[in-house]
Design a binder for these strands. Structure first.
Length: 468
RNA sequence: GGCGACGUGGCCGAGUGGUUAGGCAAGGGUCUGCAAAACCCUGUACCCGGGUUCGAUUCCCGGCGUCGCCUCCA
């Protein structure tokens, strides 16, 4: 397949380092506060990349890190008067909940920075030994000008960066461009022992060290938001390639575009955000997921309430198609549908294009069902595509409304062993009433069920119900 | 200022050198006790100005506009 590689800014044929296997490292979040819609986008985008690679037969190792030590976390802990651990745990829990609601599969490995201090120290030692880094007053800095390839990812020129670079008061850098690998501990900060005294790692070194730890040298795909290209990923490359003496650190760099709100980037530092957990509370998590997936992953995506409602309506269309024939189908997926699907996906993961293929299949499937023909091949195609996109309707039980269903059934003098049987009995009772043209009873039962979240729909071949 | 991206029908949004993307919304029809769903039909888009070409929304140049990175950020 073809992937747009930020390193080189071109579409490239994807060839993994080891045949049949893909190692993927995606920059996760700094767990400092609750996630916003932008975090959901990166998570969903790379979740689909991962699923598609697995779908076409690769054995994928998916690593998504958790940054659990940095200035902002320390600030947040101090401001709230709690431990950094508490800030990290609460935020991380919120992220995991959001990922789950969005249908994001758990990472194979979810390494935390604080659990890989030793690997970072090793890498920093390698850098110092190689003359790429220097210790200064308990800090360690990477020497940017000593790494000729610096700027190759972001397209930056070291001499032009010079003017914009700044030195904080008390900084011990030899060159304004240099960045911290290790920061000497200040009072009240979490710290770890090191050859340079107590301290903590700089931001960038964790990804270099952890990606190398789990995926080895020159692994396949490194992903993240495009706001990480500079300086984070540029620095990751510099550190890893200088320390390990390998090139490239990662072979393909993929970056998703930013979420915007009223045309401006969402950013937690400005507070210009929509809370992700709020969004997945108001709309089904998978509607938010579909909202992300309608737009090509590299483009900016503007949030609006209307867009989310639009996505939600689209999702209903998909799901109501599948509900027409519940359960597994035997047929193989319609070949031309799957061919089209793969064709668009091979084009730099054109999920928006895949959406078109999917909806085409849905229309054809619906048409066939209306005509009384078999739509199994299209349902099978639907299942396969929806599985790759992560948009399958989750099974929803009736446990939470079992008591109310019991009361309702009692009112209409029907019974059943399970909650589902109660619904069946109520629908049957309703149809008896309808057969007798007693529309009032029929409509009451439908309305009452609807109030509980059970939607009843009458079709040519009987009435069907589903949980909303 | 440097680097980069984008500008498609009412809205969202793929894609392509010449043949229907798709979704949502809208109008008309079929089905239907009502509702819902579904199907069929309708709207014929590609920022502006040049250029290349038999032909450009698609390639090139210029302009206008919007956005991102250059500082923490998915």
């Amino acid at each position: 397949m073809q992937i747009f590689n930020t390193l080189g800014r071109a579409l490239e044929n994807f060839e993994p380092r080891d045949p049949g296997k893909v190692g993927m490292y995606v920059c996760g979040a700094t767990v400092q506060s609750k996630p916003h819609l932008g975090h959901g986008r990166y998570a969903v985008v790379f979740d689909v990349v991962r699923r598609y690679l697995a779908y076409i037969g690769y054995d994928v190792t998916y690593v998504r890190n958790v940054t659990d030590v940095d200035d902002k976390i320390i600030d947040a802990a101090n401001a709230a008067g709690v431990s950094t651990q508490q800030i990290v745990d609460e935020a991380h829990e919120a992220f995991l909940l959001a990922y789950e609601k969005l249908g994001v599969l758990p990472a194979d490995i979810e390494p935390r920075a604080t659990e890989h201090i030793a690997q970072m120290i090793t890498m920093i030692e390698q850098l110092i030994a190689g003359g790429h880094a220097y210790e200064a007053g308990g800090d360690v800095y990477f020497s940017v000008r000593g790494f000729p390839d610096y700027g190759k990812l972001s397209g930056r020129d070291v001499d032009e960066l010079q003017s914009g670079a700044r030195i904080a008061v008390g900084d011990l850098k030899r060159d304004p461009l240099d960045f911290a690998l290790w920061k000497g501990a200040k009072p009240g900060e979490p710290s770890w022992p090191s050859p340079w005294g107590e301290g903590r790692p700089g931001w960038h070194i964790e990804c270099s060290a952890m990606a190398h730890e789990y995926l080895g040298t020159s692994f396949d795909i490194h992903g993240g938001g495009n706001d990480l290209i500079f300086p984070h990923h540029e620095n990751e490359i510099a550190q890893a390639e200088a320390a390990l003496g390998i090139e490239p650190f990662a072979r393909y760099w993929m970056h998703n575009g930013m979420m915007t709100l009223t045309g401006e980037k969402m950013s937690k530092s400005t507070g210009h955000i929509i809370d992700l957990l709020d969004a997945v509370e108001k709309y089904p998590g998978l509607a938010v997921r579909l909202f992300y997936l309608r737009t090509h992953y590299r483009k900016p995506l503007d949030f609006s309430e209307d867009a989310l409602a639009d996505a939600s309506a689209s999702l209903d269309r998909l799901w109501s198609f599948r509900r027409r024939r519940p359960g597994p189908v035997e047929d193989v997926p319609a070949e031309d549908v799957m061919t089209s699907f793969r064709k668009v996906m091979e084009n730099d993961v054109d999920v928006a294009g895949a959406m078109g293929v999917l909806f085409d299949a849905v229309r054809e499937g619906n048409r066939r069902l209306d005509a009384g023909e078999s739509a199994d091949a299209w349902i099978a195609a639907y299942d396969e595509i929806v599985d790759v996109l992560g948009l399958a309707e989750p099974a929803r039980g009736l446990e939470d409304i079992a008591d109310s269903l019991g009361e309702l059934a009692a009112r209409f003098e029907v019974g059943g062993v399970t909650a589902a049987a109660l619904v069946d009995a109520l629908v049957e009772r309703r149809n008896q009433a309808r057969a007798a043209k007693d529309w009032a009873i029929g409509d009451t039962i439908r309305d009452e069920l609807g109030a509980l979240g059970v939607v009843v729909e009458d079709g040519a071949d009987g009435s069907a119900w589903h949980r909303r």
